[in-house]
Simulated assay, not measured.
Amino acid sequence: MSDRAAARAAKTTLAHRLAGEPGVVGIGLARRASGYVVKVNLADPAAAPRVPGDVDGVRVVTEVIGAVRPL
């Protein structure tokens, strides 16, 4: 179980690690029954293997949402 502060710190670490990675379109926090997780939004499933399963003990989840375009 991760608290919000730990998840925020892990998000910052992961954002630096994944900066510029093709297919990664967003990184945020999500609340789950077990606490907070870092959620990585992907343009396509091919980017998923480059995303670690956890950062500093905080679980990382991925979701393929497609390309992000301005309105």
Results as ranks from 00 to 15, higher is better:
9 A>D: 14
53 G>F: 05
18 L>M: 07
39 K>A: 13
58 V>W: 00
38 V>F: 01
16 H>R: 13
54 D>E: 07
67 A>H: 07
62 T>F: 12
51 V>M: 04
25 V>A: 01
18 L>W: 05
45 P>W: 09
66 G>P: 03
64 V>Y: 08
16 H>N: 11
69 R>P: 07
41 N>V: 05
71 L>S: 11
21 E>K: 10
61 V>Y: 00
34 S>H: 02
12 T>K: 11
20 G>K: 08
32 R>S: 10
63 E>F: 14
2 S>N: 09
34 S>A: 10
7 A>C: 14
62 T>P: 14
25 V>S: 02
9 A>R: 14
59 R>I: 00
31 R>H: 09
44 D>Q: 02
52 P>Q: 01
35 G>Q: 00
71 L>N: 10
57 G>V: 06
70 P>N: 11
57 G>W: 07
2 S>G: 15
51 V>R: 08
46 A>L: 07
50 R>Q: 03
24 V>S: 02
9 A>Y: 12
27 I>T: 06
60 V>L: 03
53 G>P: 11
64 V>N: 04
10 A>S: 14
46 A>R: 10
46 A>K: 07
11 K>T: 11
1 M>S: 15
11 K>S: 14
27 I>R: 09
33 A>G: 08
35 G>E: 00
60 V>I: 09
62 T>C: 06
15 A>M: 13
12 T>G: 13
22 P>F: 05
47 A>K: 00
25 V>M: 03
17 R>H: 07
14 L>N: 07
17 R>Q: 13
60 V>T: 12
28 G>D: 13
52 P>H: 01
5 A>T: 15
41 N>H: 09
71 L>G: 10
6 A>K: 14
20 G>M: 11
56 D>R: 00
23 G>W: 02
26 G>Q: 09
12 T>S: 13
10 A>P: 15
25 V>K: 05
25 V>G: 03
10 A>M: 10
60 V>Q: 05
49 P>K: 15
37 V>Y: 01
20 G>D: 10
56 D>A: 00
29 L>Y: 04
54 D>K: 02
18 L>C: 07
23 G>M: 01
34 S>E: 10
34 S>R: 02
19 A>N: 08
56 D>E: 02
60 V>A: 10
24 V>W: 06
48 A>L: 00
42 L>Q: 12
65 I>R: 11
51 V>Y: 08
70 P>A: 11
22 P>Q: 09
60 V>K: 04
18 L>A: 09
35 G>D: 01
